[in-house]
Each structure stands twice: as C-alpha cells, then as structure tokens.
Amino acid sequence: MYLDLQTYTRPATMAEALAQLAAPGAAALAGGTHLNVHGHEHLRAVVDLQALGLAGVAREGAKVRIGAMTALTGLVAADLPAGLAALGQAADAEKNRAVRNRSTVGGRISRDRSNGRVATALLGLEAEVELATGGPDGVTRVDLHIASRLHDVATGAAHGVVTAVRVPADVRWSGYLASQLSAVDAPSADVAVSAGPRGVHIATGGHGRGAAGTLALPTTAAAATALLANPPAGDSWRAALREVAVAELPAHGDALVSGDYRRDLAATLVIRLVAACLAAHGGAA
C-alpha cells in the first residue's frame, strides 16, 4: 500500500486546519493508525492535527473533557473518576499497545471505523462531542450528543473536526465488556453500561467486518435501559433483560459471525455487566 499524497500539512491553528480541509481530497489526520489500509487511495492531502493542542484530560464543571487527540493509552493512564471505568477498559482493550499509543479518542469517532470500542463506551456514558466547523471566515464550536455524532458518521453526514468529548463526572459506576475470537481481536460484540443520577444506560456494539455494507455502529439498548429503571424482582431480571435485549438489538452478521449469534452475545454481555453493576452497588442499579 502507498498513499498518493500531494501535500501533508501540520497547521498551528484550527482556522488554518479547517481551511486546508476544505480542499478536495483532503482529510484530517489524527493518530493515523488506520491509514495504511484499503480505502485511502483517493486521498491527496492530509491535515495533521497534532500541533493544535487537542490532547489532554481535564475536569470541566460537571463533566470530564477529553481532548480529541488524547491517545488511548493517555486515556487509560488519565486520572478519571472511578465511575468512568468503562472508558479506560474500552481503550485498553483496543488492538495492541503500539496502536493504542497513537490511536486517538477523536479518531475513534471520526470515521467509519467498524472497530468501535471507545465509541461503545462513550455511548454507554452518554457523552457529548465537541466539534469545530467553519472555514476561512472563522471557527464555530458545536456540541452534539454522541448518538447523533455516530449517526452522522454512519450516514456520511459527519462534518467538522472533533476537538473533544465530554463525559458526565457524576456517573457512579460503569463497565465495558467485549467478546472476541482472539485476545487482540476486534470484538464480535461489545457492551458498555453506566449507572448514575440519570439512571442506567446501555450501549452495545456489533462490529461487523468483512463483506461491504455490514458496518454496525454502537446502538443504545433503550428497552433494556427502560426495563432496568424498574427491574423484576430477584434473579428474574436476567431472563427478562435477555428477552428485551435480544428483541431490540440489531442482528448484524458478517463474514466472521452471524447476526443472531452476535445479538445473543451482546445480550449475554449486557446481563453480565448489569450483574457486575448490581454487585458493586448492592442492589438497585
């Protein structure tokens, strides 16, 4: 593989970056760990975001702000509130250390990546995405719910440069679980669950690969979430949760796994995570 690039730029300001990105065949470059594979033959210009100061994790009121260029290992090492454990768990499970050292939080929600551990975790945490848009005339900041961002990515409507994500700092508990063929594999299915003042949130990913058109972005398991607002007594929540989860989750199959297996797997992971959450909180989620 090779990239047929005419230009590589490393702008010092967001305004410059956005202006350069307006050129045809130009793309923003974060860590670059997905660059040297199929699908980039058309690129003629890359705009490297490394000099824009977008890395870093900081408390910002009731939120934790994670800069888009924060590497996954940076996220794992960051001093996040204990309730945000799902983020570190998802980031730390990604591929391998050399990739985690380069791959960024922003990069993980900026393209049609099938492999979306961090996206699943962000969705499970009801994150907010901060974007910079605009052009030569100025820079506009926009905030989007993670679900709309992922929707935009899926439909190709995504615009702007991700500058940060914000996650609520008051989440009491969160967790991330994935199932995969091999330990350094992309997950067949993954799940993130969080519990906090705004209730329980569940997100699942089914990371379709192989044949074209099987991309499956993380989705929110709304019915499962609703069920847990008022869970059945005793242990019967497990069966009830499996039933609603299987009913509502999409069945995305691909070259490696079938849709019904992936969906059932996701339901199992949801139950395991909710159980872990209950165990951590001694009862009600």
Partner: peptide, 11 residues
Amino acid sequence: EVNSCVLLAAQ
C-alpha cells in the same frame, strides 16, 4: 512504542 508502518513519516 509505535508501529512505523501505520505512521506517515511526515507525522
């Protein structure tokens, strides 16, 4: 540690 095969030299 990084993988130099997925890192543009320019980066």
